Computed example of a mutant assay.
Amino acid sequence: MKYATEFRDPAAAKTLLARIAHVADTLGASREAPIPIMEICGGHTHSIFRYGLDKLVHEGIEFVHGPGCPVCVLPRARVDEAIQLATRPEVIFTTFGDAMRVPGASQSLLQAKAAGADVRMVYSPLDALELARRNPEREVVFFGIGFETTTPSTALAIQQAAREGLTNFSVFCNHITVPEPLKAILDDPFMNLAGFIGPGHVSMVIGTHPYDFIARDYHKPVVVAGFEPLDILQSVLMLLTQIAEQRAGVENQYARVVPENGNPVSIAAMADVYEKRPSFEWRGLGEIDSSGLRIRPAYRAFDAEEKFGIGYAGIRAEIADPEGCACGQVMIGHLKPTQCPHFGKGCTPETPLGALMVSSEGACAAYWQYGGARAAAE
């Protein structure tokens, strides 16, 4: 399989692991004094555990799991607002599948569906647009969620709805951007990071330059990486090489997919449809300036917050996580999933308390599925 099997080659992996070990030894890395590297994307977290990279790399390399799962960082109040919309009798509420099981204060969208709400899983906002065409007597709301990876497709759907003059389609916009929470993490005086593995899918859209501030202002190296085991190992080696050479820059390991300046069509669509919110709440991080996107006034007719008077356009309520739930601390790298008192006990994939166990990209789900964390919890 081109661009897959060649990035899973055992011989090449052994060579990279040996080179990583050599540089790590040169830097004096050890289990007691590790080099902490944050992988921003939840997809990288799962790849690390799926292929056992955390056990294969030099013992002085510590992977720190970042906030790179948009479902996981969605605050519970926004889930409740989605459920509020979904339970309106005139609404067909559409969403990606991974958001259906995320718990709000009292239930999830899946539970609301079981109770009678018209909640439908879609694979694209264009599916929601088609539902609006077929059901002109109903209000079709799409749960716009995700980082810059999924943001362009929602923007294109809104542009298409505007061209067609559809009046029964709107988006509950919860799209968020990656650079701003990274700044918040770097500004945390208790955070100790040596460098970042940059998100591949997000960077495919926005390019590599949005991370320049990390190297320029915080003197931390960034390597945008792919998701195969050799991608991640090579990115670790590239980060260690920068550290050893006492430099900090933004490098692109995933050049076969990620263009330096991103995707111009996607960037143009986002600029046309969205503007920055003054602030947006992140689960585990709180309010972060300019980290969320909202629909511009020119497309206000397609903004579910404006149409139904909810969210930032209405009365907002902050809802805390369940007592003892450590999702917030895990998402910003302060704790490992197994350090949460609920992990493997009150919180499992069958009975999740936190979004990190629900989402397919959540760190807790990765720990549970791979690496024997389930046995450790038991």
Rank of each mutant, 00 (worst) to 15 (best):
G328V: 03
G309C: 04
R316K: 12
L335H: 05
Y312H: 13
A326L: 10
G311S: 09
P337W: 02
R316Q: 13
R300T: 09
C325S: 14
A313C: 11
P341L: 08
M331T: 05
R296F: 02
I319W: 09
Q329S: 14
E306R: 11
A326R: 12
I315Q: 14
E305S: 08
E318W: 10
H334F: 07
E305T: 10
K336D: 15
A326M: 13
D303V: 04
P341F: 05
P297Y: 06
C327G: 07
K307Y: 00
A304T: 03
R316V: 14
F302G: 02
E305M: 12
P297D: 11
A301G: 14
Q339M: 13
Q339G: 10
I332R: 15
P341C: 08
C325F: 08
Y312L: 14
G324I: 02
G324C: 02
Y312I: 12
A304P: 05
H334P: 00
E323C: 01
C325E: 03
Q339V: 08
A320I: 00
G328Q: 04
A317H: 14
P337A: 05
C340E: 08
H334S: 13
F308E: 07
L335Y: 07
I315S: 13
C340D: 06
Q339W: 06
H342S: 11
R316F: 05
C340M: 08
F302R: 09
A320W: 01
F308D: 06
E323Q: 14
L335Q: 09
C340N: 08
K307D: 00
Q329L: 15
I295T: 04
I295G: 08
V330L: 10
T338R: 08
E306T: 12
L335W: 09
E318N: 11
F302Y: 15
G309I: 01
I310Y: 03
G314R: 06
G328D: 07
H334G: 00
G314F: 06
A301N: 12
R296H: 03
A313P: 03
Q329I: 00
G311F: 07
A320F: 00
Y312F: 13
K307M: 07
E323W: 01
Q329H: 12
E323N: 11
A326W: 00
I315W: 10
I319S: 10
C327N: 13
G311K: 05
G314W: 07
P297T: 05
G311D: 07
